[in-house]
Design a protein around this nucleic acid. Structure first.
Lengths: 198, 198
DNA sequence: ATATACTTACTTACTAGAAAGTAAGTTTAA
DNA sequence: TTAAACTTACTTTCTAGTAAGTAAGTATAT
């Protein structure tokens, strides 16, 4: 792995854990085992590094989501959409927090290329919903809202593991609450399908 | 309105818009019309001010959610839960972004009193879901997941107005996507009820 | 073959600015 | 007169970003 790739890898961990502002390039450089100007050799500025990290994740996500196009039945396709996104989060542990922070920030600083990936992914969902509507299995839906129900639920389920533990401490009678993300995905997929069905 | 209250009000706007780190006490002070040490007269440090802002919002939310206890029918109560939360977001424009940032951050820095309010609100939802289960109208649900479906969807719908516009630019064929939060609330309430029904 | 010019991938040492936080003095109101 | 509610002027720390230099390798001209 080249130094540049290593910088991206370490930076993605830091951006994910601390957010853009709190992530320090001094610390990233130290962890990579180079000096800060080495980062500036590869990237114009801090934001360019952030862009590199975010764009690589979003384009990987877009590529992965393409597989959903192969599913014919709208219900199965919607289920596949949720599961594919969920599994991507499981395999890219840094992505959930970065995406969640971007959403919280109103995506003010999201690079255009990422917005484009998001548009493509929304288009996929929109196609599934429209097909379902035409076939009379789904109602008329706002695709952005459905996307948010899926994406924000999964993302925040991932980011709030500690909060769940803290909340449960105050509620002795609620149990089985600390279910892992992987066990939530199928459950959510079923709920979303149920919610949009006619 | 006292200076202290004014500081809280202005600070909540800044924390909401820029997040904890980017919000500058120099700027807040200037907007309030005092100097920075005036803030330090009223609050021990920046985090104490943040706590004051967040706690006031969370306790207001908790108080508001109490009204849901009066609704008897589980389905109506669940609908009321979503609508009450949604309306609170409409009336407290700063709250959504702050809450969203906290969730994205894993709620690492959330004060205990806020976690307590959240626990109470979760308990309310849990009660509704349990009653529905007992009456045979709802299935067995993970209350935290249902809460996240509601809360994160509404919160992020609020924070992503600009992102929606950016995404739509890339998808000329998708229309009616920029629906306001207030038009989403009822829609979401229906979907959540449908999703948990037996 | 080999000296020269040039590039890549860095390091050392630094600047500038922002922002949190404080010590000490001052005004104001009861 | 004395406590509350500030202001002025300051320190400290952090961090993005840069200027200048260098070791090691590569291409090119002779």
């Amino acid at each position: 792995m080249s130094k540049k790739e290593l910088i991206i890898k370490v930076a993605s961990k830091h951006f994910s854990e601390y957010g853009y502002d709190r992530a320090s390039l001094d610390v990233v450089a130290k962890e990579v085992g180079v000096t800060k100007p080495a980062i500036y050799y590869h990237f114009k500025d801090k934001y360019a590094l952030y862009e590199a990290v975010l764009c690589s994740k979003f384009s990987a996500l877009l590529e992965r989501m393409q597989s959903v196009y192969e599913v014919e039945e709208p219900k199965d396709a919607l289920r596949a959409y949720v599961e594919t996104f969920g599994n991507f989060l499981l395999e890219h542990p840094c992505f959930a927090a970065m995406f969640a922070r971007e959403l919280a920030d109103g995506a003010k600083n999201i690079p255009q290329s990422c917005t484009k990936s998001l548009s493509q992914i929304l288009k996929l969902l929109s196609t599934i919903l429209l097909k379902g509507e035409e076939e009379g299995v789904f109602g008329k839906e706002n695709p952005f809202m459905i996307q948010l129900m899926i994406v924000s639920t999964l993302i925040n389920y991932k980011t709030t593991k500690k909060l769940r533990e803290g909340v449960v401490m105050n509620l002795a009678d609620i149990k089985n609450i600390d279910i892992e993300l992987k066990d939530i995905i199928e459950n959510l997929a079923n709920k979303i399908v149920k919610a949009v069905q006619c």
